[in-house]
């Protein structure tokens, strides 16, 4: 729960402090406030560094200042080892950023996950994305033991149990429950396309408050998916953010399509990149156009920009797309922030 309002009014808020939780909200985070206020939201993601240096994270987050409402910190994405999502989020909350902790089921069982969920909330994290996770065979430690004790939907139910029933799965009571805005993922672009909306319905039933999708490069598929979701009433009170990507070249696009599970890129996009004089620029143009068109589709609450190794262009594509209108997302006032490197 947030601090009493009178103290806030008297002393003002340190950006690292939690905001007071509003009525009808499940978290005290800024991201939930933006969505529930009906704004079109932008999220992006940080690839956690292969480093023990906290300043590396702040440098990366700084690139998004003023253009995003929340920053996902990936959890060993592609089954590659990086700094943990929990640590990245904890460092971001110190400055006042609104991170989304990603929790994958690949590396931890239900005991570890529940502990991390409580820990994340204690460290000021207010948003959590539940994923099943890539298999270990996709990464650089294929010899590791895959856990998969839970799947994404069981994970949603687990976090909901902690939050709403104030207890562990075992039934043991919590003194304070974690106030978390819960997210899940969807990929409407791969088989079984006709059942993907059922999967969305299941995730919402399991407790998802917001949804972030895989890369969307195919508007026709998205439109039919969203029409089904709206028909089923899934977009009321739940917030769907559609993923977009910044492609650097036709070769990158081809590589993504062939090597990253679940990425669907139509040939037209690849041809367009191939024919462009400046493919990098064209990749950003494609992203901008997609964002503008996605915003027009009924039932969509925001966009999730994934720009792996193109992070410096996120601000540019968001700005050019104009999807934020005149709204400027929160940013820390100054970025001389260093919380000290470890020595």
């Amino acid at each position: 729960m947030g601090k009493p309002t009178n103290i806030t009014a008297e002393y003002g808020l340190n950006p690292g402090d939690p905001l007071p939780q509003l009525a009808g909200h499940v978290s005290h985070g800024r991201f939930e406030r933006v969505l529930r206020a009906g704004h079109f939201a932008i999220t992006t993601e940080i690839a956690p560094p292969d480093s023990a240096d906290p300043d590396e994270i702040l440098k990366r987050a700084h690139l998004f200042d003023g253009y995003v409402d929340a920053i996902n910190a990936t959890d060993g994405s592609g089954a590659h080892c990086h700094m943990s999502s929990l640590a990245v989020c904890a460092i971001l909350t110190r400055i006042g950023y609104s991170p989304v902790i990603q929790v994958s089921c690949r590396d931890r069982n239900r005991i570890a996950i529940q502990g991390d969920v409580l820990g994340a909330a204690a460290l000021g994290v207010t948003n959590l994305l539940c994923l099943t996770g890539d298999d270990v065979s996709a990464g650089d430690h294929p010899e590791a033991k895959p856990v998969f004790d839970l799947d994404s939907i069981s994970l949603l139910q687990t976090v909901r149990t902690l939050r709403d029933e104030q207890r562990f799965l075992s039934g043991r009571a919590l003194d304070t429950s974690p106030s978390l805005f819960m997210g899940a993922t969807i990929n409407p672009f791969v088989p079984p396309v006709e059942n993907r909306v059922d999967q969305l319905a299941k995730k919402i039933e399991a407790g998802a408050d917001f949804i972030q999708s895989q890369y969307c490069f195919d508007l026709d598929l998205l439109k039919s998916f969203m029409a089904q979701a709206v028909d089923l009433g899934l977009t009321e009170r739940r917030f769907i953010l559609i993923g977009v990507g910044v492609l650097a070249s036709a070769r990158t696009a081809q590589w993504l399509r062939d090597n990253v599970p679940g990425v669907h890129i139509p040939d037209t996009i690849i041809h367009r990149l191939d024919a462009a004089k400046d493919p990098k620029q064209e990749g950003r143009n494609i992203c901008v156009e997609l964002m503008q068109q996605i915003k027009e589709i009924n039932g969509i609450s925001g966009i999730h920009v994934m720009a792996y190794r193109q992070e410096k262009y996120v601000a540019d594509v968001v700005k050019r797309s104009g999807v934020l209108g005149t709204r400027q997302p929160w940013a820390p006032e100054q970025m001389e922030t260093s919380i000290g490197t470890v020595s």
């Binding site: 298999d135 998969f148 791969v190 679940g262």
Partner: peptide
């Protein structure tokens, strides 16, 4: 399922309907 998902599928299904793993 290599991930023993009880509420599937995951988002990694190949375009031809084959398993990503």
């Amino acid at each position: 399922c290599p991930k023993t998902i009880r509420n599937g599928p995951c988002g990694g299904v190949r375009e031809n309907g084959m398993c990503e793993v």
